[in-house]
Amino acid sequence: MRTTDTWAAAILAQVVEAFEPWMSCDECFERSDQIVQALLDGEPAVPAGFRAHLAGCAACRDEVAALAALAAHDRGLDPTADEPIAQLIVD
C-alpha cells in the first residue's frame, strides 16, 4: 500500500466512524416522529444512530426539522426556544 493509500484509508475510517452506529434514511424517517414526540415530552435522550444519521444526511435533517417545528407549533411551543428540539435541529 502506498503512503497516499494509507492516508486516504485513515481519513475514510475517521469519516465513517463519525456516522456510527449506522441508520438508513428509511429507519430515520420511521423513528423521527417518535423521537420528536419524546423530546417534546421531556425525554431529551436521542439515540446515537439517529443523531449520527442527521449529522450526515441533510435530507433527513431537514425532514426532522420540519416535523419538529410542526409538532412544537401544535403544542404551542417555539421550536427554536425549546432546547432539546433546537439542539436536534441544529446538531
Rank of each mutant, 00 (worst) to 15 (best):
M1K: 10
R2K: 11
R2T: 13
R2W: 07
R2H: 12
R2G: 12
T4V: 10
T4Q: 08
T4Y: 14
D5V: 05
T6H: 09
T6D: 13
T6A: 13
W7D: 12
A8P: 04
A10T: 13
I11V: 14
I11S: 10
I11C: 12
A13E: 14
Q14L: 14
V15Y: 12
V15R: 09
V15P: 00
V16K: 06
V16L: 08
A18G: 11
F19D: 01
W22P: 12
M23Q: 08
M23I: 08
D26E: 09
E27Q: 15
E27N: 11
E27P: 05
C28I: 06
C28Q: 07
C28Y: 00
F29W: 15
E30F: 13
E30G: 08
R31G: 05
S32A: 12
S32D: 04
D33I: 05
Q34Y: 03
I35Q: 06
I35P: 02
I35W: 08
Q37Y: 00
L39F: 01
L40W: 06
L40S: 03
D41A: 10
G42P: 06
E43M: 12
E43V: 04
E43N: 15
P44E: 02
P44F: 05
V46P: 04
A48K: 13
G49F: 03
F50K: 03
R51G: 12
R51W: 05
A52I: 02
A52Y: 03
H53I: 10
A55N: 14
A55K: 12
A55E: 11
G56P: 02
A59I: 15
A59H: 13
A59G: 13
C60K: 05
C60D: 03
R61A: 03
R61N: 09
D62M: 04
D62C: 11
E63W: 00
E63T: 11
E63Q: 15
E63C: 03
V64T: 00
V64W: 03
A65I: 08
A65G: 08
L67G: 10
A71P: 00
A72T: 08
A72D: 01
A72S: 15
H73R: 15
H73Q: 11
R75D: 07
R75F: 07
G76L: 07
G76C: 08
L77F: 06
L77E: 02
D78Q: 10
P79K: 07
P79M: 00
P79Y: 02
A81D: 12
D82G: 01
D82H: 15
D82M: 07
E83A: 14
E83H: 10
I85Y: 07
I85Q: 00
Q87H: 14
L88W: 01
L88G: 02
I89N: 08
D91V: 09
D91K: 09
